[in-house]
């Protein structure tokens, strides 16, 4: 279970009030829960998930995963905590010149020595697990391809494998579908939902596409200007709540699209 309490992030100097990216955010994500984080650009979605694994250093607040503190720890403890959190990126962030297999195995770097990483000598069990995961996401036989030869959907599948091979308790997913076409987006979201269910994984998914979030995710948190303004099931997203999150706009089309999909 992930607990975030009183999380505040202020960019720049301590006194600049205008640079508040997050203000006093409290969130709890139970084990196995898939949570979507929606909100306009600049609302702090990306900052929030980067604070969880401290790629961005929080200004104030406490974060703990399964009771183990993530904030206020030293470098070694932080690396241990990061091993338990897999991260998936919008632009995939694969190492372009390395093979699919090397990219997947990079998820084990937190568990192996420097020399093992340098010589690419990963434990047998890790390699076997990498093959299993690639097979699971439909990438069998692709392990020797270089990452820059893959399509967007394939790259994101490799990114998912890299996160899962860490054996995480939590997935941090930053706009997983923003660079993909609508069909691939749905496939990737479905895959994420299935994998989280199989492994009883909690996940925070930043997502722009409200309809996609409503379709796949049981809990939605709306962020506006660094504050949580909505927290509930997808059915709770009415024109009023969407206005509260994004501002004034005609929301009927967005909601109708969802109802059409359901029917």
């Amino acid at each position: 279970m992930l607990t975030i309490s009183g999380l505040t992030k202020r960019y720049g100097s301590k006194n600049a009030v205008g640079d508040l990216a997050l203000t006093n955010v409290d969130l709890t994500v139970p084990k196995g829960q898939l949570m979507a984080l929606i909100g306009p650009s600049g609302a702090g979605k990306s900052t929030l998930i980067r604070c969880v694994n401290r790629l961005v250093e929080p200004t104030e607040g406490r974060i703990a995963l399964d009771g183990v503190a993530v904030t206020g720890t030293g470098a070694t403890a932080l690396r241990r905590a990061r091993r338990r959190m897999g991260m998936i990126f919008q632009e995939y962030a694969l190492i372009e010149r390395l093979t699919v297999m090397e990219n997947v195995l990079s998820g084990r770097l937190g568990y192996v020595s420097f020399f093992a990483a340098w010589a690419r000598r990963f434990p047998r069990a890790d390699v076997a697990e990498a093959f299993r995961l690639l097979d699971r996401v439909g990438m069998r036989g692709m392990e020797d391809k270089r990452a820059d030869e893959l399509s967007g959907g394939q790259r994101q599948r490799v990114g998912i494998c890299r996160a899962l091979i860490q054996n995480p308790a939590l997935l941090l997913v930053d706009e997983p579908t923003a660079s993909l076409d609508p069909k691939t987006s749905r496939q990737i979201m479905r895959l994420l939902v299935e994998l989280c269910a199989e492994r009883n994984l909690a996940a925070i998914v930043n997502i722009h596409d409200v309809a996609l979030a409503q379709m796949f995710v049981p809990r939605i948190v709306g962020l506006r200007a660094g504050r949580v303004v909505f927290d509930g099931p997808p059915e709770g997203l009415t024109p009023e709540t969407l206005t509260a999150i994004y501002g004034e706009e005609d929301w009927t089309a967005t909601i109708r699209a969802l109802e059409d999909d359901d029917g």
Partner: peptide, 29 residues
């Protein structure tokens, strides 16, 4: 590309590991 370095950092890799896994492949050419 700092994104690639960030991704390796997020796995819990150490500083030297980041260097050889995320930076060295990018500067080889």
């Amino acid at each position: 590309d700092t994104k690639q370095v960030e991704a390796i950092e997020a796995t819990g890799a150490s500083g030297p590991q980041r260097l050889i896994y995320a930076i060295v492949p990018q500067i080889m050419p």
